[in-house]
């Protein structure tokens, strides 16, 4: 909102161009420090973001990394091939497979995991015993701070063929399950571990939203004789609905670029068919097999679609909720 207002001021037609330019120069002369401060951040963005944008060109070239003095120089020296790599990509059978895997895995994650933190936050809020509430909060929040490598280590320990889970299954007379090798359960492992790591954190995000609600509403509802369930249904849920919708929109916006590190750590060649997602495929083809141009083409496809999804999701959220990530 603020941004829009200042923009409007900047573009007021009443101010002639030369006066504006003069004002700009005056400001810059009076505040050189302000512009010095920007330099480090712009340098970082240049190295990590904007120069790589130039590297995207290799998706349209037959890139030979040894064609120049260094890998960047080699980009200009390589021949243009137009959309050759994209054609190869879209005609190949791998593309559909990794695209579908990405969509299915992230869709399953949303369906199974998304509602849980909302319910948890509401229930956590119902716990009257303060110390117990704080203890629960502390415990469920811990996995958020574990890296994916740690989560992988923990679940490897639990789910391996000699692990405790298979031990229980055998004791109960069931067959062992190859959690990391069976294509029919592997996605389940991904969904479960994602939930295990993230539910506590998201619960606390919603809990913060609930805590921010106007307590007088609850008091008034109590006076009117509303029980706990009615208060939850008529006050809590409508109150945190904007947060819920915003979260959902963001999740959908990231449906193509979520879960890379997790899959990279958890998967192995026996489950590629169900687990290989766009980014892991780009990684294996690009860094592993040095198919730079081919994987850059897929990477570009991924970035563009992800960009459209995120910007679109954000626009929807701004329109409907007047809230956005920026």
């Amino acid at each position: 909102m603020k941004k829009r207002q200042t923009n409007k001021k900047d573009s007021l037609p009443a101010v002639p161009f030369r006066t504006r330019l003069h004002k700009d120069l005056m400001y810059i002369r009076r505040h050189p420090g302000m512009y010095l401060m920007i330099i480090p951040a712009l340098t970082v963005l240049l190295i990590y973001k904007f120069i790589p944008y130039y590297g995207i060109l290799i998706a349209f070239k037959d890139y030979n990394i040894f064609a120049g003095k260094n890998p960047l120089d080699a980009i200009a020296a390589s021949d243009w091939v137009g959309f050759y790599w994209f054609e190869k990509l879209f005609k190949g059978k791998d593309f559909m497979k990794v695209l579908m895997n990405t969509l299915i895995i992230n869709f399953e994650k949303i369906v199974w995991i998304f509602p849980i933190p909302i319910l948890c936050a509401i229930m956590l809020n119902e716990i009257g015993h303060r110390a117990y509430k704080r203890l629960t909060q502390t415990v469920i929040y811990i996995p958020h701070f574990f890296s994916w490598v740690i989560v992988y280590g923990i679940f490897l320990s639990l789910l391996s063929s000699s692990g405790v889970v298979n031990g229980f299954l055998q004791a109960l007379g069931f067959e062992k399950i190859g959690f990391f090798t069976d294509t029919s359960v592997f996605r389940g492992v991904l969904v479960f571990t994602e939930g295990w790591k993230s539910i506590g954190h998201t619960t606390i995000v919603y809990l913060a939203a609930i805590t921010g609600l106007d307590m007088e509403l609850f008091d008034a509802a109590r006076v009117d004789g509303a029980g706990r369930l009615k208060q939850i249904w008529h006050i809590t849920i409508p109150g945190i609905l904007p947060s819920i919708v915003l979260m959902l929109i963001l999740k959908v916006g990231h449906i193509l670029d979520h879960g890379f590190e997790q899959v990279l750590l958890f998967y192995n060649s026996t489950v590629y068919d169900v687990a290989d997602i766009i980014q892991t495929y780009v990684y294996r083809q690009g860094i592993g097999r040095m198919e730079f141009s081919y994987s850059a083409a897929l990477g570009l496809f991924n970035s563009v679609v992800a960009f459209v999804l995120i910007v679109g999701a954000n626009a929807i959220s701004r329109k409907t909720l007047h809230r956005s990530i920026w």
């Binding site: 120069i51 790589p52 670029d257 860094i287 970035s303």
Partner: peptide, 24 residues
């Protein structure tokens, strides 16, 4: 500047181009 930040936030150059830059 704000627009530059937004672009940097939502559009990534991708794994391979970033690797190239770091290597160079």
């Amino acid at each position: 500047l704000t627009i530059l930040c937004m672009i940097a936030m939502v559009f990534s150059g991708g794994l391979v181009p970033t690797y190239m830059v770091f290597r160079t």
